[in-house]
Amino acid sequence: MPDPLLYLKSIAAATVTSLLILAVCFPRRSATPTKVNLVSVVAIGVALAAGLSVMSIQWVWPPAGGLDRLLLIVIPVVLGVESISSYCPTDRWWAWLLRIAAVLMTPRVLLHQSIYLGETDQWTTWQRFMTLGICVIVLAAAWFLLSKLAGHRSGFSIPLALCLALLCAGATVMMGGYIKGGAVALPIVGTLIAALSVMWFMQRRMINSPIALPPVILAVGLVSLFGILFIGHFFGRVSSDHAAIVFLAPLLCWFSEMPRLRKLSPRMTGVVRLSLVSIPLVFVFVQAKHDFDEKFSPLVMDQSTNDVSGNHGFAVTVVDHIESLQSFVPKRSR
């Protein structure tokens, strides 16, 4: 059952932890990219653990479900890859080789022992190969393109766009009926926003030696977005169209590199990027809300009829769910 208070506590725990670690450990005297990225890895890792613990995520090994594998295997591997690649900022090929290895394992790990890869007739070998292959290519391409764009200018708007997409992905997965799967997006967003805030603040203070955006922020944001949409689609009820639109929406930031828009100030570039990304996200959000209303309205109807028959058990719970979720969702215009 959605618990808004628990979600707020989880976001607060993740945000405060991330802020505290970065504020205390930030290398003020010699803020080299390696040191900044390493401190960010630690801050993001600990903050995520704090936020997810508040959300009562079960830390059981081996992880049994797709969400557990995302949180216990995939994200820690990404943190590990980014901490190792911090040591080779000049030799970027090594970093990208490690990232590609992480990308290759991600879809396979998330579907481990599910009906898609087990001895069932859900997928043929060819379908498995195609699906996993497409997912790997899309994730790798998005990672490369966003990293390249973040290196140009107004890099901070890219993780912000990812945070917007993460919020939309979380809401879409929740409205598809997989409440916990969507809720984990909230502490992740809290963690990333806190890390970005500290970076932005430090960048303002250290004008003489500007701080580059730590790659780990982008990596965790992108892989988390991919993972939440992936498990929302394959284990929940998120359609492939919605999943694809939300995942690819941050790539619209590249439109800011068009000749006419390239002349804009960094702040305006960020505004343009976030505005462009918001358009498909709002579209998906409204669609998901519509599907949610369509799907669950029979349960609302059942409540009144079941009250007469006296069998009003489960429907009340579902109505509670709807009311809790609707507190997050703006009313649909009629």
Binding site: A64, G65, G66, L67, Q113, I115, G177, K180, G181, R237
Partner: peptide
Amino acid sequence: QPDYFDTKQFP
């Protein structure tokens, strides 16, 4: 859904 039986994972 995974919040309950998680039938895609545990059929």
